[in-house]
Amino acid sequence: MSEATDLPLWAAIAVAVFLLVGAALALIGAIGFLRLPTFYERIHAPTLGTSWGVGGVMVASMIFFSVTSGRPMMHEILIGIFVTVTTPATFLLLARAALHRDRVEKTKGVPEKHRADIVNND
């Protein structure tokens, strides 16, 4: 912890707040992922961790390294952009796959499609 000792107090508090908010959102997302009853509800919970959960931790890291190194270190923003753009793509694909599987198995509570065949429509 040698770098943190010469950190000004305002930067330490900002780093701590953003870090704790990000980690808490990730934890709440995981808890929701465990507790919510159906798959389509569960798909909402991890988004908590991948939106502002990642954002909070990345902002904390950016503040910490910018202040300790004395020049702006913005490269954490790359992870932030990357995760926020890619996670919706994976969730979208997974939701379509789950919908397709549920329709094939005729699970209750899943909206029907007009066409019978949704496999070959793209």
């Binding site: 389509y40 939701a95 379509r96 007009h114």
Partner: peptide
Amino acid sequence: AIVLTSTPGSAWLEYDSND
């Protein structure tokens, strides 16, 4: 699609290009 899915309260499941 990306905006709605990355918003925690809503998820984009399927788009139908016919209608």
